[in-house]
């Protein structure tokens, strides 16, 4: 990038989402997670380990908070002082929210994390210097740092375990930040296949690893720009607008409510993951 280029195209470089006047062109990857379907079984989390070469750090490092679960299942209790959690738990699969206005992106000193044209919050491992500012500024704390050099750490991938590693995904060395990529390696393949055939990626053509494995189908993933995509229909039906930080749900006082929401939306991160509230029967 020459200085001239930089100056001439400055508005392009500084262009940020969300914005109404410059919508996404072909793709805007987004997700919705139905918390009423999620059973907290952890299949998505293990699938993510398998797909994305996540290191198993072992008990000691886990105890120090060095775990690498891009997809983590949080379990909340809501027993309000009652003796038992008699309405069950609230499970929440938490992954990178791929915020449209991502707090992590603005603070990275080297631009290692930035927004792609199709609305992903990407992490460039090669560029990362490991300042960890992105994690510091991430309200969801879904960024995971390579505190050690896992490829050379004992019992992380002892031979022949390394043969399982997915060749489509970088194995990260020490000192870089990593996080959920929405399985960008799968997206890339799908997009390139579609491009070869002169079309766009169809809904359902590409799945993230967590979505693919989920036994209850709680996770929907797709292209928000595609009017036929299920994820877009869900967002629309739940009246969740990518570009707003307050949704219709919060305003509605009617009897029938919507259950789509985004976590910590009030921080104006404009996440790309919509959650659907868990339901509980009141007749019992």
């Amino acid at each position: 990038m020459s200085i001239t280029n930089l100056l001439e195209n400055w508005s392009d470089f500084r262009h940020q989402h969300p914005s109404e006047d410059r919508p996404h062109l072909e793709y805007k990857w987004a997700m919705s997670i139905d918390l009423d379907s999620c059973t907290g079984c952890n299949a998505c989390s293990v699938a993510c380990y398998a797909e994305n070469n996540l290191p198993v750090v072992g008990k000691e490092k886990f105890a120090h908070g060095h775990s690498h679960h891009w997809m983590r299942i949080e379990r909340y209790w809501d027993n309000d002082g009652r003796e038992f959690a008699d309405q069950g738990a609230q499970f929440l699969p938490m992954l990178c929210q791929h915020c449209e206005s991502a707090p992590c992106e603005t603070v990275c000193p080297v631009g290692a994390t930035n927004h792609t044209a199709d609305g992903l919050n990407s992490q460039v491992y090669n560029r990362c210097v490991g300042s960890r500012y992105c994690n510091a500024n991430c309200p969801y704390k879904v960024r995971y740092f390579n505190w050690y050099d896992y490829p050379t750490t004992d019992n992380v991938w002892p031979a022949p375990m390394e043969q399982q590693l997915n060749p489509d995904v970088t194995v990260r060395g020490k000192g870089v930040m990593e996080k959920c990529t929405f399985c960008v390696q799968r997206l890339t393949v799908a997009k390139s296949d579609a491009r070869t055939e002169g079309r766009l990626v169809l809904d359902g053509e590409v799945q993230t690893a967590c979505q693919q494995v989920c036994p209850t189908g709680a996770i929907t993933f797709g292209n928000l720009v595609d009017p036929l995509a299920k994820v877009g229909k869900q967002w629309m039906q739940q009246q969740v607008d990518l570009n707003k930080d307050k949704q219709a749900k919060d305003a509605a006082e009617d009897a029938v409510k919507l259950r789509g929401y985004r976590i910590l939306e009030e921080l104006r991160t404009y996440p790309s993951v919509m959650y659907l509230e868990q339901l509980r029967e009141s007749a019992i």
Binding site: K61, H64, G65, H66, S67, G130, N135, K141, R143, Y144, F145, N146, W147, Y148, D149, K174, G175
Partner: peptide
């Protein structure tokens, strides 16, 4: 060894 020895975490 890696930053982990500083006992920082995620």
């Amino acid at each position: 060894t890696g930053m982990g020895v500083a006992n920082k975490n995620n």
